[in-house]
Design a protein around this nucleic acid. Structure first.
Length: 719
DNA sequence: CTGACGAACTTTTTT
DNA sequence: AGTTCGTCAG
């Protein structure tokens, strides 16, 4: 068997990991050390060299994207189909298990998966029916509490009564929420994992079957696993020594949603025969970037220890730019990107990374003004858009008349004369008789408890759903979707609205039909197909929009950037309060997570890294004067070059011009100097950079705003 | 039932 | 500042 293609491209450590005998392995893989490659090649090696049947392989990731990439790369490497392998996300695999064994898991065959938005609405509705004040028990907090318990594998019945009022109330709500979900056949994301775990734990035969089947279990990004995910892995691999995990404790950035880095330590205890391989050679970044990143992460106490190295050169220094304000920060970044593109690079290789989504705005504005195409990652995803959610709600109600969430969502969308008053009666009836909204509505009509007008409106709504449901028995999935968006009046609703937004919505609805056409579940029963499609919509919210592949500058949060790399990276907004965030300032463990986040951000850069912060920033409509981030101050000076001489005044503009204490610079012009320009009029020099022909100054013109000017061409006059 | 206005809230996010 | 959500008046 020829395995050179599998081994050839690997370095010594990677090779050691890939060709290790079948046993538990811990691959501590630093940023840019080829972690996915090791995983892919390991699986290929098992199949090719060890004659392992693909059927016995399980590989778990966190995102659909990672799963798809792994599949693709294995297929490319081996030229075989990966169909028989279980490769997927924790949630996707759990869902698969639950569909197969719904009965044993205590779920109806037609159970529906709800996303966090659905969950939020459900909780809100629950609070209302329980007559609880939202202001006192914020739905977000309730949601967070419930999910946190589930992530730890804790059911409401496991929890002890407490004297604490808050805790007691939460427990009460958790119980009620569980009952409601069970009654309506709804499964949230955390529930998928918890159920799948309980299914295996409590059904010896089923567990035995999967333990037999999965002889080789692989996990990507293991540092991001939470308690229940790890417990599930332990069940699957119990009694065997076959868990192959890849992770990096330094890149654990999801602690806030239940991820436990400690699982790495637990693994070492639970799988004592495991072998550790450290991948420390970095193939991505230059020496300076890498050393600086190492220096920052070394401030963390809790680490397994790892030091990245590279045999590529030191490269350029990290450029640090102290911007005057957030506007100036954006100008600076865009200016650099323009230069970068002028130098013959492509925009796609440049990324702007920020801590919070709100920061993207000013960069977007400046990019638009400069006419530079860009793409923001992580906005609203396809299946999360309101119009799509509405269409899906119709489909869900068709699949299950007793889905109260969907019922409520669309009962009057588009408006069909069923107002709050009528709906309140339906809800009250449902609550009183402990039946679904659908049943309550039917009952109210039968008992003639409503005004003629309300009864008519309600009746025609119920008939509409029934009609669509009957039609769907014979239609293909996509025809059904099409029938629903037309028959429901959703399409017409958006079509008559003459705005650009509405046009988008129409397009999206059409795209939904297309998505249904392309969706190919492994089932031939129409009802099952619809259920699968709805679960698919919840589980795979769909990447933003993959429409145009134009060469774009990339904008995203640091979290979204994990796993990616760019030649040119701008790490912006490195200020106390923003990054690290205000909320993490008091807590050491959270500060360490912020530091890891910074580490992740820096190690995205291949060639050049710019770090910026603003000395003054408008935040929540208020002017703030933040200190530079401690993360920034932890970078040793030897790896840094400051892009400009920083004036020792917080407002160079006003302070300097008023008292005349301008800071002297070479080249004649001074910071704070008043100048005049033929076109732009009078202004104040804010800063300067570059030398000789490249020398440039930034001037704040009274009438024309802030501008960068080439000194050689600008012909500025001192006043 | 719809539209308008005002209050409250603003980390990170995948599934 | 900007958005979202809920209440209020028409």
């Amino acid at each position: 068997m020829d395995v050179t293609a599998i081994i050839e491209p690997l370095n010594a450590m990677q090779r050691q990991a890939v060709t290790a005998p079948a046993q538990s392995m811990l691959i501590l893989a630093g940023a840019g050390s080829g972690k996915t490659r090791v995983l892919v090649h390991r699986i290929a090696w098992l199949i090719q060299a060890e004659s392992v049947s693909p059927h016995t392989i399980l590989a778990v990731t966190f995102t659909n994207k990672a799963a798809a990439e792994m599949r693709g790369r294995i297929e490319a490497l081996l030229a075989i189909s990966t169909r028989s392998m279980w490769i997927g996300t924790f949630h996707g695999l759990a869902h698969r298990l639950l569909r197969r064994h719904a009965k044993d898991a205590g779920l109806p065959d037609t159970f529906q998966v709800i996303d966090s938005d659905d969950q939020y609405r459900l909780i809100k509705r629950l609070l209302k029916t329980m007559n609880l004040d939202e202001a006192k028990w914020p739905p977000r907090q309730v949601q967070w509490f419930i999910n946190a318990q589930k992530d730890e594998g804790i059911r409401a019945r496991h929890m002890l009564e407490s004297d604490d009022l808050y805790h007691r109330q939460m427990l009460l709500l958790y119980r009620a929420y569980e009952a409601l979900c069970q009654r309506s056949g709804l499964v949230d994301f955390a529930e998928l994992l918890l159920r799948a775990h309980e299914l295996l734990r409590d059904n010896a035969e089923i567990l035995d079957f999967y333990q037999q089947r999965f002889q080789h279990v692989h996990v990507d990004e293991f540092q991001d696993t939470n308690t229940i995910q790890y417990a599930w892995l332990r069940l699957i691999t119990a009694g065997k020594d076959n868990l192959f995990i890849v992770g990096d404790d330094d890149q654990s950035i999801y602690g806030w949603r239940g991820a436990k880095v400690e699982n790495l330590y637990s693994f070492q205890k639970h799988y004592p025969n495991h072998q550790v391989v450290r991948l420390e050679q970095n193939y991505r970044s230059t020496g300076n970037i890498l050393h600086a990143a190492n220096a920052i992460i070394s401030h963390n106490e809790a680490r397994m220890g790892k030091e990245l190295w590279t045999d590529s050169g030191a490269g350029e220094l990290i450029s640090v730019y102290a911007a005057f304000n957030e506007q100036d920060e954006a100008y600076f970044v865009i200016e650099r990107i323009r230069q970068w593109v002028n130098d013959g690079n492509i925009r796609q290789d440049a990324a702007i990374l920020y801590r919070s989504n709100a920061q993207s705005r000013q960069f977007e504005e400046k990019l638009i003004a400069a006419g530079i195409p860009y793409r923001v990652y992580g906005g609203l995803r396809f299946f999360e858009r309101a119009e799509i959610k509405n269409a899906l709600a119709y489909l869900r109600l068709i699949a299950n008349h007793h889905d109260d969430g969907s019922f409520e969502r669309i009962i009057n969308v588009p408006a069909r004369g069923i107002g709050a008053r009528t709906f309140a009666e339906v809800r009250q009836k449902a609550q009183q008789d402990n039946i679904s909204l659908w049943q309550a509505a039917t009952g109210l009509i039968a008992d003639k408890k409503l005004s003629a007008r309300a009864a008519n409106a309600l009746q025609s709504f119920l008939q509409l759903i029934d009609r669509l449901a009957t039609a769907s028995d014979t239609l293909e999935l996509y025809e059904q979707v099409s029938a629903v968006i037309e028959g429901s009046g959703l399409l017409a609703l958006y079509q008559q609205e003459k705005s650009e937004k509405a046009e988008m919505r129409v397009e999206n609805l059409e795209e939904l039909v297309n998505a249904a056409r392309l969706y190919d579940p492994e089932s031939d029963e129409n009802h099952a197909k619809l259920d699968m499609f709805l679960a698919h919509a919840a589980l795979e919210s769909g990447d933003a929009q993959s429409d145009d592949y134009e060469d774009c500058v990339q904008l995203m949060t640091l979290h979204a950037a994990k796993g990616l790399e760019f030649k040119l990276v701008f790490l912006v907004g490195l200020e106390e309060g923003l990054f690290p965030t205000q909320q993490s300032a008091e807590d050491i463990s959270r500060l360490e997570e912020e530091r890891r986040l910074c580490y992740v951000g820096m190690t995205r850069a291949m060639q050049q890294l710019f770090v910026t912060y603003a000395e003054s920033r408008r935040l929540y409509g208020r002017e703030t004067y933040p200190r530079s981030s401690r993360c920034l101050r932890e970078i040793p000076a030897e790896y840094i070059q400051e892009v400009r001489m920083r004036a020792k005044i917080s407002h160079p503009l006003t302070a300097a011009s008023r008292n005349g204490s301008a800071v002297a610079m070479e080249g004649g012009l001074k910071l704070g100097q008043l100048v005049s320009h033929v076109k732009f009029g009078e202004g104040v020099v804010l800063q300067k950079e570059g030398e000789g022909a490249q020398e440039r100054v930034q001037v704040n013109f009274t009438n024309a705003g802030v501008k960068w000017l080439m000194l050689a061409y600008a012909k500025l006059e001192q006043i």
